[in-house]
Every structure is written in C-alpha cells, then in structure tokens.
C-alpha cells in the first residue's frame, strides 16, 4: 500500500523532486504574500475597538500557528527517524528547526508590539506568552543539538529525542487560553461553523496564512536540499552533480 512512497526515501530522488518544485513554491509565495500583505495593510477594515493596530493580527496569527505547525512536522520527522531509522527524516527535521525558530520569534515580537498599545505592556508572564517563549527555547535547543555533534546521525538522534519530549508544549500553548486565566484573547479564527470575524477581515487573513505557509515550504525545501548535500557529499551522484570547473 505504501510502496509508491519508497522511492522518495532515496536522497537523490528527493533532491531532484524538491528542486523541480522549488520554483513553483517561490512564485506562489511571492504572489500570495504580496496580495495578502497589501490587502491586510491597505484594504482590510480597521477594527472597531483596536483601530489600525489590528493589522498586526495578519502577521501575528499566521506566525504563531505556523510556529506550532512546524514543530509538529519536526516531531513527526523525528519520530520517523527514531523508529524507522529513516535518514532523510533527520535532514528534514534539521531543515525545519531554524524556520520554526524564526516564526516563533516573529509571533513573540508581533505579540509584544500588539500588546503594548492594547494591554499597556510589552510582556506578561501568563500562560500563552510563557509557553510560546518555551517553544522558542525548544527550537534553539534542537538547533544546538543538530550542530553539537560531528556525526549527523548521532546529532539527529539527540535532537529528535528533545523534539519528541517537547511536543508536550504544543497542546499547552494551544489550550493555555482556555485552561488558565490569561490576558491573551481566545481563538478568533478557528471556531468553525460560527465565524467570529467579519468576512472582510477573514479573507486577507486566509491569503496571508497561505502565503506564509508557502514561504515556510520554500525555505524548508532550500534547507532540506542543503542538508541532503551535506549528508551525502561522498556519494557518486553528488560528485556527478557538482563537477568542479575544468582545467584546475
């Protein structure tokens, strides 16, 4: 049943497949992000209570959801690597970690810049903010472990264990606004069936979310290809791919 998947476990096949997909992801990213951000900044209505500071929402929420989404992806990759010794999974986990860290940083920064005018403070030690900060530290720990060992397989194993232990933080972030009293508001968007957001705000948000998700895909593809090359540099197909300039 899963046999059609097997060729993609081959680093050479994966390298060329991502190479072919990369231009499409790049163009789609540029289109969606441009439309989404212009829509969010210029055409979306101002909030009746928060005014134009609400425009930070179009960065903050996609960044925060992607920071968690990337972590879940990284954890699935780590699990595949630890359970099935699937080497490419390590490469993809190593490719995801820095992207996730950057999106977590953006979520924290835009949250602070939105919190200052709305709550009167840049930062409070409440459940949502603190657990998101821990997510940043988890990402930094995973990146550090990936770089701590000369042996990439060993590094992948260490980072993978930390990643899987850290998954416990994801439901804590998600439900922190329900479990504890917090300054952070509850979910606005993901209440399916009863949208608590006007359509003129929802559409630019969806375009921004898709745009940022495509950007994540693009950057992870680039980094994944770098990881493949670094881990397979002695293989004949890599040597053939990168022939040194003649006459040297």
């Amino acid at each position: 049943m899963w046999k059609w998947l097997h060729p993609y476990a081959n680093p050479e096949v994966s390298y060329h497949l991502t190479g072919r997909l990369l231009p499409w992801f790049s163009y789609l990213t540029a289109i969606f992000l441009f439309v989404g951000i212009v829509w969010a900044l210029v055409f979306a209505p101002a909030d009746y209570q928060q005014g134009d500071s609400f425009r930070i929402f179009y960065l903050h929420v996609p960044a925060a959801s992607l920071s968690m989404g990337i972590y879940v992806g990284m954890a699935i990759a780590a699990l595949c690597s630890l359970v099935w010794q699937f080497k490419l999974a390590d490469a993809s986990a190593a490719a995801m970690a820095p992207v996730g860290a950057v999106f977590t940083f953006i979520a924290l920064l835009t949250g602070a810049a939105w919190g200052k005018p709305m709550w009167g403070t840049w930062w409070v030690w409440d459940a949502r903010l603190t657990s998101e900060l821990i997510l940043l530290f988890l990402y930094l720990g995973v990146i550090a472990l990936h770089n701590a060992f000369e042996d990439k397989a060993l590094a992948g194993k260490a980072a993978g264990i930390l990643t899987i232990v850290g998954v416990i933080n994801i439901p804590i972030i998600k439900y922190s606004v329900e479990w504890w009293n917090t300054l952070h508001q509850g979910s606005t968007v993901s209440q399916l069936g009863k949208p608590s957001m006007s359509i003129e705000m929802l559409w630019p948000f969806i375009v921004c979310l898709i745009g940022f998700a495509l950007l994540v895909t693009t950057i992870i593809c680039i980094r994944f290809r770098t990881e493949i090359l670094a881990r397979n540099s002695m293989r004949p197909w890599v040597k053939e791919l990168i022939t040194p300039p003649e006459g040297q």
């Binding site: 951000i37 425009r55 960065l59 950057v102 810049a113 939105w114």
Partner: peptide, 20 residues
C-alpha cells in the same frame, strides 16, 4: 500614521519582513 499606531504596526511588519 496607521491611526496613531504607526510605531507598533511598522515595527511588527518591518522586523518580521527583515528577519524572514
């Protein structure tokens, strides 16, 4: 001017796009 929230909005968008 962003309805008086210029600093916060442009800080968010500026730093985010720069970091990305």
């Amino acid at each position: 001017d962003m309805g008086g929230y210029a600093f916060y909005v442009w800080l968010s968008y500026g730093v985010s796009l720069g970091v990305l």
